[in-house]
């Protein structure tokens, strides 16, 4: 059974395409002399290898969207990078997102693209689809008008869309087609790195698998890397090579998909996986008590301790570091004690 898994093992010598080091990004507000600070991304370090799909899982307000926005360099105040760096490696040239702004601007869409969540909100409702492609991709490709059009059409055909959609308005297309379009839009320049933010959440269940297969296919053909963000663990199970679990702005666990699902080390991960309902199984699932923490006033120590069934005194006072364990990393004082929850 294990031999059937095609998810690639994490090879040590693989050269990372993205390196995030000690990244801290806070929302800093100062209204009428009252300072508020929301630590949405708190000391996150991760690397993403070439030709890899890295899944980021976490619930709403866990800071996962802030994290990928910070990685993409697409943040505006009050969200600010306080510390740390985000470095891409495109074709051997290192690019620091926050130190080399002009180079970053040129690299955007050509090397680094973004599949956004609500496809409805990406495509302008009063302009034809072809204009979206022109706006996003034309200047990055350095082709003549005719060549550009031909390239876009052949690209759309490859992802299973009739090139005639270019002449239509977004409202004339179904949700699945629009989501395909946004994927087409993000991949037309064949970028090395794609950030996908909940690309399947708004879709009907019947098209979800097709869109996931499409993303996987495009990724395999181009050999690019994808950060795939969703709260749906079953989607991660289907396409991610590695998974990072984000809780309250911190990366709490990371590992290969198989390891995370079969041997979760962090109690939060174990809970997420154990609570997934399966068809054919009506055994009672235990729900996690408490509520997600408020990032403006996070709990001391380990941020999961108020909801954690294994919490001890140390968890309340000291923040556990993210340490290597098995094939991945985990931040928990009692890591591994939830085995087979």
């Amino acid at each position: 059974m294990l031999a059937a898994v095609e998810n690639k093992p994490v090879s040590v010598e693989a050269k990372p395409v993205l390196r995030v080091e000690g990244l801290k990004a806070y929302y800093q507000m100062n209204y009428f002399g009252v300072r508020r600070e929301v630590r949405a991304v708190d000391d996150v370090s991760l690397t993403i290898n070439r030709n890899e799909i890295y899944g980021i899982a976490g619930e709403s307000s866990s800071g996962k969207s802030s994290l990928i926005k910070t990685i993409a360099g697409a943040i505006t105040p009050p969200l600010r990078v306080v510390e740390g760096s985000v470095k891409f490696d495109f074709g051997g040239k290192e690019l620091d997102v926050y130190a080399q702004r002009p180079a970053m601007k040129a690299a955007r869409w050509k090397h680094l693209s973004y599949v956004m969540q609500g496809s409805m909100n990406v495509l302008n409702p009063v302009r034809k689809v072809k204009h979206a492609f022109r706006d996003f991709a034309f200047k990055h490709m350095g082709l003549s008008e005719g060549e550009f059009r031909a390239r876009v059409e052949s690209h759309l055909q490859r992802i299973g869309l009739d090139p005639r959609v270019l002449e239509s308005y977004p409202h004339q297309l179904s949700g699945g087609m629009r989501q395909r379009l946004t994927i087409g839009l993000a991949t037309v320049c064949e970028p090395e790195f794609i950030i996908a933010d909940e690309p399947t959440t708004a879709l009907d269940v019947l098209v979800q698998q097709d869109v996931l297969a499409l993303i996987k296919g495009v990724q395999q053909r181009m050999g690019s890397s994808i950060i795939f963000v969703t709260h749906d663990m079953t989607v991660h199970a289907a396409i991610a090579d590695r998974i990072g679990i984000v809780y309250a702005g911190r990366l709490v666990e990371e590992g290969s998909t198989l390891d995370v699902f079969q041997h979760p080390q962090h109690p939060y991960t174990a809970h997420l996986i154990a609570s997934l309902p399966r068809i054919g199984d009506t055994r009672k699932r235990v729900a996690l008590g408490g509520k997600p923490p408020n990032l403006a006033d996070p709990p001391s120590g380990c941020r999961f301790h108020p909801r954690c069934p294994l919490a001890v005194d140390k968890c309340k006072s000291e923040n556990p570091p993210l340490l290597a364990r098995n094939s991945g990393r985990v931040a928990c004082w009692r890591a591994g004690e939830v085995e087979a929850a």
């Binding site: 059974m1 294990l2 059937a4 898994v5 095609e6 998810n7 299973g160 269940v205 019947l206 979800q208 698998q209 097709d210 996931l212 297969a213 499409l214 996987k216 296919g217 395999q220 663990m233 079953t234 989607v235 199970a237 289907a238 396409i239 998909t257 198989l258 699902f261 079969q262 996986i273 997934l276 399966r278 068809i279």
Partner: peptide, 26 residues
Amino acid sequence: RALRSAVLPPDPVVASAIIREKLRAI
């Protein structure tokens, strides 16, 4: 039946096999 088979199981082995199958069909 189509709805039923569209549900991804929360199991990386089975789920990734389903996606690979879809990929072959495309």
